[in-house]
Amino acid sequence: MIDRDTVRHVARLSRLRLSDEEQETMREELSGILEHIEHIQSLDLDDVPITTHVVEVENVLGEDVPHEELSVEEALREAPEVAGGGFSVPRMG
């Protein structure tokens, strides 16, 4: 149902490095799961709207008033690598 190319494509979109072995396992497992949920394909849903939110709330807006900010030290505290007051980024080719 899902081939290796699709697995590779989706893994790239997801930014997940998968070994060859993991790709194969993933292919089998995803195919298995999709097979189990395939029955929704046969439902007639043409006139059914989608539900994205279950609460009927609208217009929740915050006032444009500054709040307390983090100190630079706090902002950078958990970063694996910092330089020059910023978060280090790997080499971009």
Binding site: H67, L70, V72, A75, L76, G84, G85
Partner: peptide, 12 residues
Amino acid sequence: DPPNTHTCPVCL
């Protein structure tokens, strides 16, 4: 302003 002087958990 100097880098990362206007941040909070949300924008980080």
